[in-house]
Structures are given as structure tokens and as C-alpha cells.
């Protein structure tokens, strides 16, 4: 998954706080039994009218904005644990979500699907919204190896945290199940211990 080492993209701004997973993917779309196609219904109730036509005032329907980085207000991904939210964001084509605060379960779900949650300071977030406002083509550069995010409009840069294990997983395309399966003996030993 070399795509994460470093990448630069314009952004899709969503300056709303507390965006919950019911907004990211409403429950009526959770009837599928595989992981495909959720991107089409990302933010469905904000994005489409009742008859399925696009709501023109919603940012995903505004051709001025685009890119593989979603920038959202604080406390992104609260509410339901549905991983469908991460599948929808990934399916739409976002590689990273930038916010000043993420809900816990969402953060895990995103990482487990190769979507990078990047926590920035409230000031940095406000500046990104401001620069995109004045120039929709303003870009961010995210470097996972160095754990930095840079606003190319202002030249300002911040470091973000990610635990080293998860970082290695993302950089090397490993997943948690591989790790856990390699621990079978220890799991069985633990089970004997608690018997």
C-alpha cells in the first residue's frame, strides 16, 4: 500500500461538527452483505433529494471541490459502530479524513480499511477551511512516514500521531487478523490459564 507514504491532494471541505455515522451512511443502506458500492451512498441524505437527484448545494455535488482528502469539523464519526461508514468513505475514493477530533470506533474502522484519520489542531483545521474557501484548489500534503500534514496554501505544517503498529500495518499492507492468527498458541495458553 505504497499510496500512503506521501500524497498531495485538493480537499473536500465539510465544516460541520459532530458528523455521525448515520449521516455518513444512513441505516437503510446497511442491508448489503458485502463491502461494495457504499461510496455511492456516502452522505446520502445530504447529497440526494428524495427523487435521487443531486442536491446542488452539497459539497460532493459541487464540481469546484474535489480530491482524495475529506476535511471535516470536530468529532467526526460519532455514533454507530458501523464499519460501512469507513467502506463508504473508502469506496468514494477518499484516502484520508482530516479533523480536529475523531470518535474512537470510527478511527479504528478507518485504519482497518486503509483510510487514514489525521488529527490536527483546531487552528490548523480552521486555516484549512479558510484557505479552501478562498482557493478551492488549495492542497494538503500528507506524509505518513514522517507523520506530517502540510497546508500548501499557508506553508504551515503539523505532525500527527498514529500508533507505530498501525502505521507499519498501513505502510506494509498488513492487517490485524494476520497478527492475531500468529498468536494462536498464546491464545490457547491463555485459555488454559483461565480454566
Amino acid at each position: 500500500m505504497g499510496k500512503y507514504i506521501t500524497f498531495t491532494s485538493s480537499v473536500v471541505p465539510l465544516p460541520i461538527e459532530n458528523i455521525d455515522t448515520d449521516q455518513i451512511i444512513p441505516a437503510r443502506f446497511l442491508k448489503a452483505t458485502n463491502k461494495d458500492g457504499f461510496g455511492d451512498n456516502l452522505f446520502a441524505d445530504w447529497r440526494y433529494n428524495k427523487d435521487g437527484s443531486p442536491k446542488l448545494d452539497f459539497v460532493l455535488n459541487n464540481p469546484t471541490f474535489g480530491g482524495t482528502i475529506l476535511v471535516a469539523g470536530k468529532n467526526f464519526g460519532s455514533g454507530s459502530s458501523r464499519e460501512h461508514a469507513a467502506w463508504a468513505i473508502d469506496g468514494y475514493g477518499f484516502k484520508a479524513v482530516v479533523s480536529s477530533f475523531f470518535a474512537d470506533i470510527f478511527q479504528n474502522n478507518a485504519l482497518n480499511n486503509g483510510v487514514l484519520p489525521v488529527v490536527v489542531s483546531a487552528d490548523f483545521l480552521a486555516e484549512v477551511f479558510a484557505s479552501v474557501n478562498s482557493n478551492p484548489k488549495a492542497t494538503l500534503t500528507i506524509n505518513l512516514q514522517n507523520q506530517t500534514i502540510t497546508s500548501n496554501a499557508t506553508g504551515k505544517s503539523e505532525t500527527f500521531t498514529i500508533n507505530t503498529y498501525k502505521k507499519e500495518c498501513l505502510l506494509n499492507g498488513l492487517d490485524d487478523i494476520d497478527y492475531l492468527l500468529s498468536k494462536k498458541e498464546q491464545i490457547e495458553a491463555y485459555e488454559k490459564l483461565i480454566k
Binding site: R82, A86, N108, N112, D176, I177
Partner: peptide, 8 residues
């Protein structure tokens, strides 16, 4: 937990 974790 999320579905990846359900699998785990």
C-alpha cells in the same frame, strides 16, 4: 467494535 474486529 467494527466489522473487521468482528472477524478478528
Amino acid at each position: 467494535i467494527g466489522t473487521s474486529e468482528v472477524e478478528m
